[in-house]
């Protein structure tokens, strides 16, 4: 998931990034061309967008239901847009009114800033810049952080009393690690991580495809893996996410991005979304993702149940 969420944060990617942006702009034209709600739509319609993976679709649905429940507005869902760049361009151009984003992604992929570790500093910086440059409001975080997650088997966590990443320092030397290519290569990934926590493993990490990591962990082929903190399978397989107690990983807090003009015209949207602030934990997001991915359920149903349970 975070593969989509956090792209292009290394300087040497600048060229690539330019190309990506060109493609993204072109794609926006296409989106715009085929959109029914073209241009500055007025009146009582709100368009909610999302990127093209489960968590984004669930969050967009949550925003949509929330607005429908707390206002008389009609909500159009324009989900599955192909990535950060397309959502950003669509938002700025007014093709969509809001979409869920992650603060770290906004900072590195959209604003081209280097990664930072302090969540509130990142949030403030993103909020300021978006307001000034794009006329977009960054609403307060929903509560969960979708970042790299170091995951161990639940039984090991229990037996060895593991809660934080620091706790594994003494066990790591006889552990085998399994990591994805992204974790190995990214500047905020493996190299910096072992340095920050002074870790050493029994052998070089096994480098696996993300989808196979959890399987290898469950089958005891490896003892620790790096996934994404909101991956649904973590809960399903009874695994435990270790806390990043030294705040090594940059924050990727989920936030709603909404057009300023939309909020001015319909203040009830801000009110409706404010009810969600700080209300979704990583654990809950994992369960929502699992219900859709693992349970093959309709995101709308999953969100409806979640909203009634949480009394939003």
């Amino acid at each position: 998931m975070s593969r989509h969420a956090r792209s292009g944060c290394k300087k040497s990617f600048a060229l690539q990034y330019g190309l990506l942006r060109a493609i993204a702009i072109f794609a926006c034209f296409i989106v715009a061309f085929f959109s029914t709600g073209c241009g500055q739509h007025s009146g009582d319609k709100i368009v909610v967008g999302s990127k093209n993976f489960t968590e984004q679709i669930v969050l967009a649905e949550l925003f949509a239901q929330q607005i429908e429940a707390h206002s008389a507005l009609r909500v159009e869902r324009r989900v599955n847009l192909g990535g950060t760049m397309i959502c950003q361009q669509a938002l700025v151009a007014g093709k969509i009114d809001l979409y869920p984003e992650y603060t770290g992604t906004a900072l590195t992929a959209v604003l081209n800033d280097p990664p930072q570790n302090d969540p509130s500093a990142v949030f403030q910086r993103v909020q300021q810049e978006y307001r000034a440059r794009f006329g977009v409001e960054v609403l307060p975080p929903l509560g969960f952080n979708n970042t790299f997650a170091l995951v161990v088997r639940g039984e090991d966590a229990l037996k060895l009393h593991l809660r934080t990443i620091s706790d594994i320092a003494s066990d790591a030397p006889h552990w085998r690690a399994g990591f994805g290519y992204e974790f190995m290569e990214r500047p905020d990934g493996y190299r910096g991580w072992v340095a920050a926590y002074h870790l050493q493993f029994a052998s070089e990490p096994k480098i696996l495809d993300l989808g196979l990591l959890y399987r290898a962990l469950a089958d005891r082929q490896v003892d620790i893996v790096a996934g994404n903190s909101t991956d649904g399978v973590i809960a399903a397989l009874g695994m435990v996410v270790l806390q990043d107690d030294r705040h090594y990983f940059p924050p990727y807090e989920a936030v709603p991005l909404v057009r300023r003009s939309t909020l001015d015209r319909h203040p009830e949207v801000r009110k409706a979304l404010a009810a969600l602030t700080g209300k979704i934990s990583e654990e809950e997001m994992r369960r929502l993702n699992l219900a859709v991915d693992g349970g093959y359920r309709d995101p709308a149903d999953v969100v409806r149940e979640f909203r009634s349970a949480k009394k939003f």
């Binding site: 593969r3 992204e182 480098i207 495809d209």
Partner: peptide, 22 residues
Amino acid sequence: AAAIGAGGLGVFIFRGVAMVNN
């Protein structure tokens, strides 16, 4: 094979996909 940690030329492909680097 690079998806299961067996190496080979696929390593570059997986790495490149992860880093968005053609």
